[in-house]
Design a protein around this nucleic acid. Structure first.
Lengths: 173, 173
DNA sequence: TTGCTTACTTACTACTAAGTAAGTATATTG
DNA sequence: CAATATACTTACTTAGTAGTAAGTAAGCAA
């Protein structure tokens, strides 16, 4: 719910009302569960961190190139739903977020980067993924491509994601 | 002024006051020049489109790989200043923007994509730039890498931009 | 000098935001 | 059954937002 709002309108462009009204409750009911808006943001991020950890754990036994495809599929679904990625949305508003939220955003970014770096490193060892340079630089590039492909899709049309994702996978596998 | 605010706080997170106060004028003075906030946004985007056109025209005589480096330098400066790219910032808030602003954001994205696609195409012909796949897909990837590298730099530290930019140039040249 | 334009200020409206305090219905538990 | 916790509602405060209407001071133009 709040997740969807952050991904469509941005953290600073939605209000408690936007969450309360569709649930047919009052404004204050949301304040009961999340006293400050920052608590709402933290909830959204923590939820995402947990979901990401669960997903990657589930993929653990797969070959690295297939794990990569799984990650791409997550973004493909978001593209289809008209959502952008949480990192992308919150990075834009980063300077306006509470220190607690900033810390969580950093944590979320770090864990994605760490997982992706490790995936690429192992994939290269197993000759399933091919790239030049360090695994970390390549992980940063993939993260940034996935993130911005959703942003560009919004502005230039959803084909942008498809073109980027296809080329990215072709380059690596 | 407004440009800087959009690039740091985002379009929905700054107010007329943020522009008026540093100039030591009243709120209404800004409304005199830009009646609605959308007009302010349009002013910022039009300014960027003009600046981009002027820059690329100035680079026209350079070899394509050097034109690419010039583009990277623009982003490098923004990274240094703690700014994110206009496209990135406005794409996040896209759904909340007026139709007029959305149209300008689209126009800005299209012209950057068009220029970059052409630059890559010519660069490949002249054997100065090397890549697989279509020039358009590659242009989208470069755009998205530059865009998100500024976003990730904010969250993960400014080294993120440097790593992405360096690897990207190494891949292409 | 009169009239007109530019670039404001003052003072406001209408609205929306986050957040809170106090009260209430319902369910759970000792 | 009484006490308590949960999940709200009602009604409010405070503070900020975009935007406007009316007035004004300075400069320029015929």
């Amino acid at each position: 719910m709040a997740d969807r709002l952050v991904r469509t309108k941005g953290f600073n462009a939605f209000s408690y009302k936007d969450i309360a009204a569709p649930l047919d409750v009052k404004n204050a009911a949301i304040h009961y569960h999340f006293p400050a808006k920052s608590d709402l943001g933290i909830g959204v991020i923590d939820n995402e961190i947990t979901k990401f950890a669960a997903s990657t754990a589930k993929w653990k036994k797969l070959p690295e190139d297939e794990q990569l495809v799984k990650l791409f599929d997550v973004f493909r679904k978001h593209n289809h739903a008209g959502n952008i990625c949480l990192m992308g949305s919150l990075a834009t508003d980063y300077e306006t977020l509470s220190p607690e939220m900033q810390q969580r955003v950093h944590q979320m970014g770090s864990s994605i980067l760490q997982w992706l770096t490790n995936c690429l490193e192992q994939g290269r060892k197993n000759k399933r993924i091919h790239f030049k340079g360090t695994a970390e630089a390549r992980a940063l590039m993939i993260m940034s491509n996935l993130q911005s492909s959703l942003l560009l899709s919004r502005v230039l049309g959803p084909a942008a994601f498809k073109k980027i994702a296809a080329q990215l996978l072709a380059d690596l596998c």
